[in-house]
C-alpha cells in the first residue's frame, strides 16, 4: 500500500532546501516519468515524504548568463527541443531530445530528472558530458542558501547514484558557450527510433579545423555503470588528421576502451562492435564536415 506520509510542494528554492535540510527522508518528484515506473515495479521505494518541486521558480527556464547557458532542472525535454537559444548554441542537445522516448514523455520529463536518475543510458547525459556541463546544487546547511558546482563527469557514481547529497537540490546545469567552429554530434542506437533505451550512445565534440578535431570530448552511454567520457579515445582523436587509417585506429581504441555488459537488450560483444562501427561512421562524417 501507499506509504507516503507527507506531500509537500514548496514554492521557492529556500523552502525546498530548508525542508530537505530538516528531513532526509524525501523523494523528489519532477516529471515523474522515471519515478512512477520505478516505484510501481518496486525498483525504487518512495520515501516518507514526496516533494513535488514543480512550483519552484528558480528551477525553471533556459537562459544565457555571462558566457554560459543555464538550463533549469525543471526544463522539460520538449522545452529544450523548442528553445531557440539551445538551437543556436547547443544543437547537439536537440539531437538527443529528438530521440528521447516519445512526445508524451518529453512533455513531462525534465532535464534535472534525467540527470538525477543517472541511468547509464540516459539520453541527455552523453551530449551534456561532451559539452562539459556543470551541475549546480543548492542546499541550506546553516540557515542560508548555498550553491556548489560540480562537473557532470564527476557527478555520476553508479547506476542511479550521484554525488547529490540528500539535502541538496539540483538547480540546473550550466554550459559554457561553445567556441567558434565547435562541432558536436550525438548518435543513439536502439532497435526502434522512438521509445527505446539506448543499446549504446555516442557523443563526439571538439573544435573542427579542416578534418581534425581539437579540444576533443567523447562520451559513451550504456557501456559502463555510468555515462562516461572516453579519455583514451579522446587522446587518439585529438588533433589527428582523419584519414581512413586514422579513423579505423580511433574506432578500435574506442572499442577497446568500453567495458559493457550483457543484458536483455544486447550482449557486451555486440555493444563493442556498435561502438567501433558507429564511432567510425561518426568520424567519417567529421572528416567530411
Amino acid at each position: 500500500m501507499n506509504e507516503i506520509e507527507h506531500y509537500v510542494a514548496p514554492s521557492s528554492l529556500e523552502q525546498a532546501a530548508e525542508y530537505l535540510q530538516r528531513s532526509g527522508e524525501v523523494t523528489l518528484l519532477a516529471g515523474g516519468t522515471d519515478l512512477m515506473p520505478q516505484s510501481q515495479s518496486g525498483k525504487l521505494k518512495i520515501k516518507r515524504t514526496l516533494m513535488n518541486i514543480h512550483q519552484i521558480p528558480e528551477l525553471k527556464g533556459i537562459t544565457i548568463e555571462g558566457g554560459e547557458i543555464r538550463i533549469g532542472a525543471l526544463a522539460t525535454i520538449t522545452e529544450i527541443m523548442q528553445s531557440e537559444l539551445i538551437q543556436k548554441h547547443l544543437p547537439i542537445l536537440i539531437e538527443a531530445c529528438d530521440q528521447f522516448a516519445s512526445d508524451q514523455i518529453r512533455n513531462a520529463a525534465t532535464l534535472g530528472g534525467n540527470i538525477c536518475n543517472a541511468s547509464p543510458a540516459g539520453d541527455m547525459l552523453i551530449p551534456l558530458l561532451v559539452l562539459d556541463a556543470e551541475v549546480e546544487l543548492a542546499s541550506k546547511p546553516n540557515g542560508s542558501l548555498t550553491r556548489r558546482r560540480l562537473r557532470l563527469t564527476e557527478f555520476f557514481v553508479g547506476p542511479g547514484k550521484t554525488r547529490r547529497a540528500p539535502a541538496e537540490l539540483l538547480e540546473g546545469v550550466r554550459i559554457a558557450l561553445p567556441p567558434p567552429h565547435h562541432y558536436a554530434r550525438f548518435f543513439k542506437f536502439g532497435t526502434r527510433p522512438a521509445l527505446d533505451i539506448s543499446t549504446i550512445s555516442i557523443g563526439i565534440a571538439g573544435v573542427l579545423n579542416t578534418g581534425t578535431l581539437s579540444n576533443v570530448r567523447v562520451a559513451f552511454g550504456a557501456v559502463a555503470p555510468v555515462p562516461t567520457r572516453a579519455p583514451r579515445t579522446e587522446q587518439a582523436l585529438e588533433g589527428r588528421h582523419l584519414d581512413a587509417a586514422a579513423i579505423d585506429a580511433i574506432a578500435a581504441v574506442a572499442r577497446d576502451e568500453v567495458k559493457p555488459i550483457d543484458d536483455i537488450r544486447a550482449t557486451a560483444w555486440y555493444r563493442k562492435e556498435l561502438i567501433h562501427n558507429i564511432t567510425k561512421r561518426m568520424l567519417t562524417h567529421v572528416a567530411q564536415a
Partner: peptide, 9 residues
Amino acid sequence: RDYKLVTAP
C-alpha cells in the same frame, strides 16, 4: 519498454 512493439515511425 523491453517487449518492443513496432511504433509509428
